[in-house]
């Protein structure tokens, strides 16, 4: 994990949209009086969803909302890698899993493609500013490795061709189908069922 720093160029201000503000108030109300700071992760996450990335004014604004010291909110924002401290691609930020199962199933090739088609380094914007990528730790879809997460969905069973198609679809704004890209259902065996092949209506043989 690299050293995480705030991005040098920051927007001047941050404010929740009215809907998010109302949501934030409900979130804060979940915690007892004096423990408002417990809502910090939820609020930072919502701010990131709103802005695309976690900005310095957002960190301050949320710390003020929760009565926390700025440094405490900054600690949270820098501790969790889910908070993007630098601007991400306008169209998509790709989180490529590089943990062992994905690596064994070829995530290296996907990362190479990211370097080639998006940007040389993770957390760097592509030339048009539409894309960015990063390597992340296990996304919990090891049976469908390799996996890329975009937003809240994962795209599984990738190989360079399928990944190239995803990139093109993103580029053109075509809708994507989350889940396995090879067409298998969830994490069922890739070549069709391998167990329970007999007619389930028949009684199992006694061993």
């Amino acid at each position: 994990m690299a050293v995480r720093r705030l991005y040098p160029e920051q927007p001047l201000s941050f404010a929740f949209t009215p809907e998010n503000q109302a949501w934030a108030q409900r979130e804060i109300a979940k915690y007892p009086a004096g423990k408002e700071a417990s809502a910090v992760i939820a609020l930072l996450w919502r701010a990131q969803e709103q802005e695309g990335w976690t900005t310095e004014p957002a960190i301050r604004a949320i710390a003020d909302m929760l009565g926390m010291a700025y440094i405490r909110a900054l600690e949270i924002a820098t501790f969790y890698t889910m908070f993007q401290l630098a601007p991400v691609g306008k169209k998509a930020h790709l989180q490529v899993c590089g943990t062992t199962p994905c690596m064994l199933r070829g995530s290296d090739a996907i990362i190479e493609m990211c370097k080639e088609h998006i940007a040389e380094h993770p957390h760097e914007l592509s030339k048009d500013g539409d894309f960015s990528w990063e390597e992340v730790e296990c996304l919990g879809c090891c049976a469908n490795a390799p996996v890329v997460q975009i937003g809240k969905d994962t795209y599984e069973d990738l190989d360079p061709e399928l990944f190239a198609k995803i990139l093109q679809d993103l580029e053109k704004g075509r809708p994507l189908k989350p889940g396995s890209q090879t067409g298998r259902q969830t994490s069922c065996p890739a070549g069709g069922p391998t167990t329970l092949l007999a007619d389930p209506t028949l009684k199992a043989e006694k061993v």
């Binding site: 994990m1 690299a2 050293v3 010291a69 700025y70 440094i71 900054l74 600690e75 820098t78 501790f79």
Partner: peptide, 19 residues
Amino acid sequence: VEELGAISRGEDMEITTYL
């Protein structure tokens, strides 16, 4: 005065003030 804190984590943890 809540001024000092530790940003990042693990080996990269650093003691600092807010900015």
